[in-house]
Simulated scan of single mutants.
Amino acid sequence: MTVIRSKQKTPYTPAFVGGVLFFLLSLALVCWFATRVVVWVQDQQNAPIRQVKLYGDFGHIQPKQLHGKLQQQFVGNFFKVNVDQVQQFLQQQPWVYQVAVRKQWPGTLVVVVTEHSPVAVWNNDYLLNKKGEVFKAPIEQLNAKLPHLAGPKGSEQDALTMFGNVQSLLKLHQFEASKLAVSERFAWELQLSNGIALKLGREDTLKRVQRFIDLYPAISKHKTEAIEQVDLRYDTGLAVRFAPPAVQPEKRKA
């Protein structure tokens, strides 16, 4: 019996080998390209900052001084500039409310600063912005005269709201408030720009202010001395304290 073996063709034909080589070459090329991209990105991240562009609507911040600090701190740094660190640095500067920082290729640091808008002095040492948030900045750098508010921690927003309500009522009658204080027990005391102090207590604050406005013409005509304080913590009526009369100097005998 004769066994005939069929000849099988080897799979390693020139076309197959060429395809494998082409695949390996393509894979190597892709890996090399990806490596180069990673290296390029790292180089860009580690590239030195050559200039800083500072933007913002500044009222109290001196842009030249702030720009100089940024230039000194970050320009020419060959290490990776961390945007978060730049933001943290800026948030520590006076008058800075919000910051947006980004790197612009090839070597520019773009900084956009939003400044605090102060509306009142708080407890003589701090400032309040429009949202009733406390911040620290040199009070002597204020561009305008601001009212003084005072109170315990956590009462900032209440004090700001109350001052706005009282001020609106007073302005209708040609008065102006300059100071407002709230105690730990939430009792209010108001001082007008003419120096009169109003004790308002804890309840019916605006009604008591209105009572003062209604009775002021009669109070001011009652005595010639200046009014120092008006106590409105009564259900009806009020108590008035007048300044002591000025002491006249004695005339010397000739």
Rank of each mutant, 00 (worst) to 15 (best):
L146Q: 03
R241S: 06
T161Q: 10
E189C: 06
Q73T: 08
S178K: 09
P147V: 02
K131V: 07
V20Q: 04
D231L: 08
F89T: 08
V230P: 10
L232H: 04
V121L: 04
G154Y: 00
A15M: 06
G107S: 08
L169R: 13
T108V: 08
Q72W: 00
F135W: 05
T161C: 03
A150M: 06
A197Q: 07
F79M: 05
A100C: 01
Y216Q: 15
K207P: 05
W105N: 06
G18F: 08
D204T: 06
K207A: 15
F74M: 08
F22A: 15
E184C: 01
N123I: 02
G237Y: 04
H67G: 02
G154E: 01
G107V: 06
E184F: 03
A120W: 07
G201N: 05
Q104A: 06
L24W: 15
A47N: 05
L54I: 03
K64I: 13
A34Q: 04
K64T: 13
S26N: 14
K253I: 14
R102N: 04
V39M: 13
S117I: 09
V39H: 11
D158Y: 10
L29I: 08
I61V: 12
I139Y: 02
K221Q: 15
P245W: 04
L25K: 07
K153A: 11
V96S: 09
N123T: 02
K251D: 07
L170G: 01
L109D: 03
V52E: 09
V230Y: 06
T10L: 08
T236K: 15
R102L: 02
V37A: 04
I213Y: 13
G56R: 01
F175G: 05
L149C: 05
H148K: 08
N77L: 12
N165W: 11
H148A: 14
E140Q: 14
R50Y: 06
N46L: 12
L192M: 00
T114P: 00
Q167V: 00
E115L: 09
F78C: 11
S220C: 07
L54N: 11
K253D: 05
L238R: 03
M1D: 03
V166Y: 02
P106S: 00
V111W: 00
E228L: 12
V112S: 13
L172I: 13
R185C: 09
K199S: 14
Q174I: 09
V111T: 00
V101F: 12
T2K: 11
P94L: 01
A100E: 14
T35C: 09
K145D: 02
N82G: 01
A34H: 03
P249W: 03
R202Y: 04
S155H: 10
S183P: 04
V209S: 14
I227P: 09
Q167T: 02
V41H: 13
F163E: 00
L109Q: 03
G237R: 11
F175P: 14
Q71R: 13
N194P: 06
F79G: 15
A181C: 03
F22L: 15
I196L: 03
K223C: 07
L238F: 15
D231G: 13
Q157N: 11
A159N: 01
D57R: 06
W105L: 10
K53Q: 12
N124P: 00
V3I: 07
